[in-house]
Amino acid sequence: MRIKHVQAWWVSIPIQTDRQHRSDFGQVRTFDAAILRIETDDGLVGWGEGKNAAGSAGSYGALVHMLNHEIGPQLIGRQAGDIGIIWEMLYNGVRHESAAAAGHAMPQLARRGLSIAAISAVDIALWDILGKSLGQPVWRLLGGRKLERLPAYASGGWAPADTIGEQLQSYIDQGGFRAVKMRIGAMDGAPHVSAARVRAARQALGPEIEIMVDAHGTYTVAEAKRFVHLVSDCDIAWFEEPVIADDKAGMAEVRASGSVPIATGESEATRYAFRNLAVLRAADIFQPDPAFCGGISEAMKIGVLASAFNLRFAPHLWAGAPCFFAGLHICAASPASFTVEYSLGANPMIHDLVEETVEVKDGMIEVPDSPGLGVTVCERFLEEHAQDT
């Protein structure tokens, strides 16, 4: 089961005008990702996804070039089942043999950003191949699943104060969700504007629906603390990315300023960054993105860290199908997981890229039983939306 062929595409799928939304990222007109296909010499195909932008839009030319011309050639001829060994090889670069012999990491100097995004795509695809080769879903290879269906929350919420309740209620009506997430922060301007939107949402939805808020890292520490104070009586389930990911000490300060749980991690890569968050007591909930943090392998290690520090684990899954399905398997196998992010903005990268139907019923989403990730990519659709790079 040796790797024979590696091909990545920058896939950019237009979002119809009436389903677009505007946030601090601007007007979101396309859904973009780097989609990776790995084929073995015995005909097995695995699918992966890498992301260099946390939102759904972004430029993926550089990441795709790295996968096709730098990472891909290193994989040809290697055993596809050597997932951990390949991860460490790509992470440590030219020093991987020394690192293996010494028993500790000696990572290449550019060990973040595009490098880890590329490793993420490879790792997800290799787990898909391993599951298919054994006829088993990935969650079984990770230790089993704790539930056949997982609780999901509806992720969206960009409307102004006078219609935010209606928008979030429409999510609840679609899938029976008991928890919803709305965007706040720079898109609103001052913290009191975001607080007014949150207050309107709570009034519209009542006390039984959980409400999470996501600032995308756009507040200063002072603004985030002020927002926490303004919504102290709104029973917020979590406050996501209050400040930029680079300011972990500031994140810890925000967490210590109130009783709202802090969630973060979609912009973090590898177990080492999450270790620092835990040691600094900067977060209550870890949110690694499998297509950015280092793939399924690294996300599971991050989940173990969460468990060890008595924290919770809710991966960032505003993503394409390979990343989203990877997240389902990770959540199914992780003892610290408790909810699945389900995007209610337009997401053709989940619903149109694959043949499977992805939906939430009664606030729950099924964990796939099929071998590998459980996705069947429509290669014709992929090629129709692949960009020249």
Rank of each mutant, 00 (worst) to 15 (best):
I35P: 09
I35D: 04
L36M: 09
T40G: 07
T40F: 00
L44I: 12
V45L: 13
V45Y: 13
G46T: 04
W47S: 06
W47L: 04
G48E: 11
G48I: 11
E49L: 04
K51W: 11
A53I: 00
A54D: 03
G55M: 03
A57L: 03
S59P: 01
Y60P: 00
G61L: 03
L63V: 05
H65M: 10
H65S: 14
N68S: 09
N68T: 06
G72H: 08
P73S: 03
L75C: 10
I76C: 02
G77Q: 10
R78T: 14
G81V: 01
G84L: 14
G84E: 15
I85M: 14
I85D: 15
I86V: 13
I86P: 00
W87F: 15
E88R: 13
L90I: 11
R95D: 15
H96Q: 10
E97Y: 13
S98D: 15
A100D: 05
A100G: 03
A102H: 09
G103Q: 06
A105N: 13
M106T: 01
P107A: 08
Q108C: 06
L109R: 14
A110V: 03
R111P: 01
L114R: 13
A117N: 02
A117L: 05
A117F: 06
S120M: 02
V122E: 00
A125T: 10
A125D: 07
A125C: 12
L126G: 01
L126P: 01
